[in-house]
Design a protein around this nucleic acid. Structure first.
Ligand code: ZN
Ligand code: ZN
Length: 653
DNA sequence: CCCTCAGGGCCAATT
DNA sequence: AATTGGCCCTGAGGG
């Protein structure tokens, strides 16, 4: 079966083609395509498909010259300018040369039509050739020695990967030098246990919440979401306190601490939630949730509660059943919760390793924890996998944002009322935004360009612009705005701000270092699950979105003063990574016209305070002027949007 | 049996 | 003359 070869050849580096992301743009030149088909494994236009076939058939791929040191732009117009770069981009996008049939394969595939042609012509000798060659093929197929050539063709991605690995290894060796003492198992376990017990003392749980749960279990009522939320919040604080009691954790840089907490707090919450639902007796259930034995009135037989709704999906249920099975087969019990917590805390998702500064210390500690007892290593392997889905659901249901706020001082000027206002407004804004669906094709396109680390093509950016315009209009539904302004005024003031808001959004997306992180604010649960499934299907890491016109490492702006900001020099925690806080920023951008025209309105006063909060944080961390930073960013992005608008020809009148 | 999908070749238009 | 890309043909595979 020669044709089977089309599906087989996925090397690990060929992530794009392995996923088979369908889209309505060409992944090579970026033009929009009518068809929804894959060509040689990749979504492309007809032109790029034909070009690739010709290049491979005539074996010209390597001989194309380039005048521009192989860095030509490849888009709808320029794709004909440089064949070398076009072909290179075909390969980078994951097009597979082996999918182009060679003479033998062609003859085999189009046997009948050839026969028909032959009837009229003189292909006698061809037939013999044919059979000989076919034999040749079938023996050749049994023989899997053909990787050398493909490896060369895939070199850009390999190089990319190799660079990472090299850098990673360097960092590991560098840091393992200054990472001291190897602890033995028992002292490590003691350290963890002490940290845990101390945290238990330091972070007591509100009696009210516990009482609520006792009531639920006595009355067999469903678990009320607000109560569950409080329980999770308490567990979250406990986990934070636990992390701060651990010497090894406190020694990490702020960046790594933040990243670990942000990504792993939800795992811990997922762990206790799973166990809460899987234990068979009320007392055991509640012990996982509150770390203590809650007492019921005597002679009262409390009910075991199970809330399928809260888990979200069958996948989650299957995952946590797996977990339970493992726990019971290895004898893992509640008494091991501190070890499990440490495993959660120090686990690093493969996609995050790049963003960690001290990955070596972290993974070493994780390893040490894994070796505490015989079961830890085995359970740890699957712990994270089985928890990730639920963690995702929990964050989505109970925490609009992430978990970073803990270790950051807040501006005292920003009082509680404002915080509530912001939360309310941002969750409304976000609901509105998430409810505008995103086409599957667009999701696939975004994913593809992240996986292959290529710039987003212009047409896709325009599509995104339209999409986000729709999402931003959700702002019309904010009751805080409706109360003070008529719909007419709102529209007049908001409409001109849409491009600016889009820029702010791009800025937000760019400031995140991973794909899911950057997009999660704007997608619905289903859309995120769809992407996660795709990613799980065969990709180990997904890079950030890339936009060459905005993503510059440094830039210079401003009238009289020359200010140079280097993005990569500004620590990540200088910005609010929190969704809510980003949405606050978005709110400010969207309503800037309103603020100018109606400085006394609630939103104007709020935005003023919000700006103070942001700048306070930024200046505290970086010692740079937030105003300058904002202005320079704004002007840079503005020029970018103007260029988009020009190309789009929408402002031609 | 018909449909979808992803191959191939053809050839008018373009460069 | 060579290249490009829109269009149609072909056969595998699935319901
Ligand atoms: Zn193309
Ligand atoms: Zn070139």
């Amino acid at each position: 079966m020669a044709d089977k070869r089309i599906e087989i050849p996925t090397l690990d580096q060929e992530k794009g083609s392995k996923l088979g992301l369908r889209a309505r743009v060409c992944f090579v030149c970026g033009v929009n395509t009518k068809s929804y088909h894959l060509n040689y494994g990749v979504s492309t236009c007809l032109g790029c498909r034909a070009f690739f076939r010709r290049s491979v058939q005539q074996n010209k791929g390597k001989t194309y010259p380039c005048k521009n040191s192989s860095e030509c732009n490849v888009d709808g117009e320029s794709r004909k300018k440089c064949r070398k770069c076009r072909f290179q981009r075909c390969l980078n996008a994951g097009m597979n040369p082996e999918c182009v049939l060679n003479d033998d394969q062609k003859k085999k595939r189009f046997k009948r039509s050839l026969k028909r042609q032959r009837a009229g012509k003189k292909y006698q000798t061809e037939k013999q050739h044919n059979e000989i060659l076919l034999k040749g093929i079938s023996t050749k197929e049994l023989d899997p020695i053909e990787d050398n050539t493909t490896e060369q063709k895939l070199s850009p991605k390999l190089l990319f990967k190799k660079r990472f690995i090299k850098q990673y290894e360097q960092e590991v060796s560098a840091a393992s030098m200054n990472f001291p003492s190897k602890r033995d198992k028992t002292s490590l376990e003691n350290e963890v246990r002490e940290a845990w017990e101390q945290a238990l003392k330091m972070v007591p749980c509100m009696a009210l919440v516990k009482d609520c749960f006792v009531q639920f279990h006595m009355n067999e009522s469903t678990v009320m979401r607000p109560a569950f939320h409080f329980a999770l919040c308490h567990s979250k604080d406990l986990f934070y306190s636990f992390s701060q009691n651990l010497e090894s954790f406190r020694m990490l840089s702020a960046n790594d601490q933040g990243a670990l907490l942000e990504s792993n707090t939800s795992k811990f919450l997922a762990l206790i939630t799973s166990m809460y639902f899987l234990e068979t007796k009320s007392v055991d259930q509640l012990r996982w949730l509150f770390r203590e034995e809650l007492s019921f009135p005597k002679h009262y037989d409390p009910v075991t509660l199970f809330d399928y709704q809260l888990l979200g999906s069958d996948t989650v249920y299957r995952d946590i059943r797996n977990l339970l099975q493992q726990f019971s087969s290895y004898g893992v019990k509640y008494e091991h919760i501190h070890v499990l917590a440490a495993s959660c805390l120090f686990h690093v998702e493969p996609s995050l390793t790049v963003h960690m500064l001290e990955i070596n210390s972290i993974s070493k500690f994780f390893k040490d924890v894994s070796s505490i007892s015989s079961w830890t290593a085995k359970v740890n392997n699957n712990l994270q996998d089985n928890l990730s889905e639920l963690a995702f659901v929990l964050v989505d249901r109970f925490f609009v944002g992430s978990f970073v706020a803990n270790n950051v001082r807040t501006n005292p000027e920003f009082i509680v009322d404002d915080e509530i206002w912001l939360n309310e407004a941002s969750s409304l804004l976000m609901d509105g935004m998430c409810n505008i669906p995103v086409d599957k094709s667009v999701l696939n396109e975004l994913l593809h360009f992240c996986i292959t680390s290529t710039q987003l093509p212009e047409p896709l950016i325009n599509t995104l612009f339209d999409l986000f315009k729709g999402k931003f209009l959700a702002l019309f539904n904010l009751p805080q705005l409706k109360r003070e302004f008529s719909a007419d005024i709102l529209y007049q003031c908001l409409e001109p701000s849409l491009p600016g808001a889009f820029c702010a959004t791009l800025g937000h997306i760019l400031s995140r270092n991973n794909f899911m992180g950057s997009l999660s604010t704007f997608l619905s649960l289903q859309e995120r699950l769809y992407l996660r499934e795709k990613i799980r299907a065969g990709v180990t890491s997904v890079g950030p979105l890339m936009l060459n016109k905005v993503d510059q490492t440094s830039f210079v702006v401003l009238n009289d003063r020359v200010v140079q900001f280097q993005f990569d020099r500004i620590p990540r925690h200088a910005f609010f990574k929190d969704r809510q806080l980003f949405l606050g920023m978005l709110l400010r951008v969207l309503s800037c016209q309103l603020i100018l025209k109606h400085p006394e309105s609630t939103i104007a006063r709020f935005c003023e305070k919000f700006f103070l909060k942001c700048s306070h944080r930024f200046e505290q961390v970086t010692n740079l002027s937030f105003t300058y930073f904002q202005d320079s960013l704004a002007s840079l992005k503005l020029s970018y949007v103007v260029s988009i608008a020009k190309n789009q020809n929408i402002c031609t009148q």
